[in-house]
């Protein structure tokens, strides 16, 4: 379980004045759970998920991953193995000189046997349509191809939880669907919990639980369909429901 216990986070602005981003958030993410997080830009979504694997440490409160506290430096490596992370812009996380090596990179650090490592690399190349590029430099891939590579590299490590911070914003509709289908499959297999930060309400609809943030606070949490039925409430905080909910609302009102 990822336990988020009353966390606060702020940064200092250009005048040295602290600007709060997270104002006391508590929630638990269970193993195998499928969670979507939505909120307007600046509501604290990215900050919240970066606290989940120790990329950021809350100023107050704490985050506990399967019993390991993120503030404990000794636990960080173990936490990062459990909690994989995919960012919006894959340029920020791809480090290797070939596609194949990018996927193998994390596996080498896990100390996997050679055969096992190769099997996993091959599987990921196949699953993400990257086999034709295996010996190419990631530098020459398109934005969408790089995003598939970043996801392949993280999933190859078989984390227990994977956090995806708007992973599909650069993908074409069919590759977007491919990523989402894969997340659904992982969920059905019950292997990996995923936490998807998204601006696409249609994607959030696929999660078991939706968490909506507003100005650094937990605004609502519950079944996506229940939360999306409150259209006026969503519009008031700068969000929109899936189009079908929106149309029902417009037709009724």
């Amino acid at each position: 379980m990822i336990g988020i216990e009353d966390i606060h986070f702020s940064y200092r602005d250009e005048h040295g004045i602290p600007r709060p981003v997270l104002n006391g958030i508590s929630l638990n993410i269970e193993p195998g759970e499928a969670v979507a997080i939505m909120g307007a830009n600046g509501s604290g979504k990215s900050t919240l998920v970066k606290c989940c694997n120790g990329l950021l440490l809350p100023g107050k409160g704490r985050v506990v991953v399967d019993g390991l506290v993120t503030a404990d430096e000794q636990s960080l490596a173990a936490i990062r193995r459990r909690v994989g992370m995919i960012f919006q812009n894959p340029d920020n996380q791809i480090v290797s000189t070939t596609v194949e090596r990018e996927i193998a990179f994390g596996l080498e650090n896990l100390g996997l046997p050679y055969e096992e490592m190769h099997a996993r690399v091959d599987e990921m190349l196949r699953r993400f349509d990257l086999t034709p590029f295996r010996l190419k430099s990631p530098h020459y891939l398109s934005g969408g191809e790089k995003q598939r590579l970043a996801l392949a590299a993280v999933l190859a490590m078989r984390p227990r939880y994977v956090i995806l911070d708007e992973p599909t914003s650069l993908l074409d509709p069919q590759h977007r669907r491919q990523i989402i289908d894969l997340l659904l499959k992982l969920h059905h297999e019950g292997e990996i919990a995923w936490i998807l930060v998204t601006q696409f309400p249609e994607e959030a609809l696929l999660a078991g639980r939706l968490i909506i943030l507003e100005q650094g606070r937990l605004f609502r949490a519950g079944k996506p369909a229940d939360l999306f039925a409150e259209v006026d409430e969503l519009l008031a905080i700068g969000l929109e429901p899936p189009l079908s909910f929106y149309l029902d609302h417009l037709a009724g009102g």
């Binding site: 307007a40 830009n41 934005g143 914003s169 601006q199 969000l239 929109e240």
Partner: peptide, 12 residues
Amino acid sequence: DEPTAGLDPRGL
């Protein structure tokens, strides 16, 4: 080039 990628509905 992809001017709305990552923006919320208001930004979009």
